[in-house]
């Protein structure tokens, strides 16, 4: 699975982190970091993360 976060849109809300902590993290500087090619087993969690992003910045490009 391929995940893309539009970092122009992302405002570091961090909501995605609660849904898929294996994939999304807020680093010490307060900015989002993420795994771009997570295991397919995490698909449901990543879909949930994309749903809860207030900026709708996360896309899943299979």
């Amino acid at each position: 699975m391929k995940v893309v976060v539009d970092m122009e849109r992302c405002q570091d809300h961090g909501q995605c982190v609660f849904s898929a902590p294996e994939v999304f993290q807020i680093n010490a500087a307060g900015r989002l970091e993420y795994v771009a090619d997570p295991d397919d087993a995490l698909r449901e969690a990543v879909e949930d993360a994309a749903d809860v992003c207030p900026l709708q910045a996360i896309t899943i490009e299979d």
Partner: peptide, 11 residues
């Protein structure tokens, strides 16, 4: 500034 991360600490 950083309100989202700050509030999240209390979740």
């Amino acid at each position: 500034g950083g309100a989202a991360a700050t509030a999240a600490r209390y979740r």
